[in-house]
């Protein structure tokens, strides 16, 4: 029974993904269909249109293994072996330093502003 429930819940999430894909391609919205599906489900849950228990277990299982779905995609990097052998150091430098800059910028912006926010709330209280 539990597995049947999980399968049905995943089927429902898949349906939302298909709806997201359709809406995005019809309206030319600049987000991928799966991300639109996520915002759609978020709206449905937040405005109490569907209860959390309809999706909770299926979602939990998919999220626990979300990293798995990226593995076959990353294997696709093997096609670019030659380019990475020829210019690997430069490309890797840009990719990694770019990543470090983004991580630090986002992290410190949020940290700084969140602290300011908490302080303001504290003064009001």
């Amino acid at each position: 029974m539990r597995w049947l429930k999980i399968v049905l819940q995943i089927a429902f999430l898949w349906l939302l993904f298909m709806v997201g894909d359709l809406v995005v391609s019809l309206l030319h919205i600049p987000v991928p269909g799966n991300v639109f599906g996520m915002l759609l489900l978020f709206g449905l849950l937040t405005f109490n249109i569907i209860p959390l228990k309809w999706v909770e277990e299926g979602a939990g299982l998919l999220l626990k293994h979300m990293a798995f779905f990226f593995i076959p995609i990353a294997v696709g990097l093997m096609v670019w072996g030659d380019l990475f052998l020829a210019q690997g150091i430069q490309l890797l430098t840009v990719v990694m330093i770019g990543a470090v800059v983004t991580i630090l910028t986002t992290a410190y912006t949020v940290l700084f502003l969140a602290k300011k926010y908490d302080k303001k709330e504290g003064e009001r209280a």
Binding site: L13, L52, L62, A107
Partner: peptide, 30 residues
């Protein structure tokens, strides 16, 4: 199943909606 897995991210987001509201400006700026 990558598509439905991304849709499933709405669940933790929904559970943390109070935090999203409270820190909306820091989050968007970051």
């Amino acid at each position: 199943l990558l598509g439905p897995a991304t849709v499933a991210l709405a669940v933790p987001l929904h559970k943390n909606v109070q935090i999203l509201k409270r820190y909306l400006v820091p989050i968007l700026s970051g």
